[in-house]
Amino acid sequence: LPGARSGVAGASTVEKQTAYADATSYNNFYEFGTGKEDPARNAGKLQTRPWTVAIEGEVKKPQTLGIEDLLKLAPMEERIYRLRCVEGWSMVIPWVGYSLAELIKRVEPTGNAKFIEFVTLADPKQMPFVGSRVLEWPYVEGLRLDEALHPLTLLAFGMYGEVLPNQNGAPVRLVVPWKYGFKSAKSLVKIRFVEQQPKTAWFKAASHEYGFYSNVNPKVDHPRWSQATERRIGEDGIFQKKRPTQMFNGYEAQVGQLYAGLDLAKNF
């Protein structure tokens, strides 16, 4: 799946890219198990064709799009983003996709659309750990409409020039590079435009640990560990000190204004 170099500011970091083998074997995708190697082992059963994504709620043009329609909706771009997991590790991944804004513009949100809720596949027949008590299924994520419209917010279909591997969220996922990785919902089946802030899966599981915003922020610790540093997978040697985490994962120049006047310690 080829993508042209993106013209979006901040969309092409020149940092060393994480090895494909690491990016596809060290995953959090709890529908396929909670171990890091589980998704690569168990995601083979996921059927990504046929696939549809329902666009619902506060839009003038609600519709259900097939994956083929989505792939043709806008030109593919390559975006090389830092990915910071809330657990304290990070990667650099070349994604292929287009700005979510392209899709949003086409479905014409109404004045009531303040947030977007992203619902992901929860099929116990294809996903052995749907039904485990880790989270409430289906996995739900959410963004404020202005966050979703930001050009860096990516609807991704590929990585490393190829179609997304199942364990990385095939056939279509979200990538929000300035937020912790769990905000970037995988294997999307529903995009709902809503007026109220969505109750996200991790918020429901532990609201004191995982807020709605979940912006990468080295100054606001997770209740159980520090967020000041991170380990870059495959690059930082075993005995190397962890590297400092950057505000908004290094995308402060691009997204900082979205949060002007917001208390980020309270709205973590």
């Binding site: 083998a21 690491d22 074997s25 060290y26 890091k36 590790w89 380990r231 997978i233 495959g234 075993i238």
Partner: peptide
């Protein structure tokens, strides 16, 4: 495992 790099993507965590 640490020397031969067979501890997976995050060897520090594995150790």
């Amino acid at each position: 495992g640490a020397l031969a790099n067979t501890l997976g993507a995050n060897p520090a965590e594995a150790l």
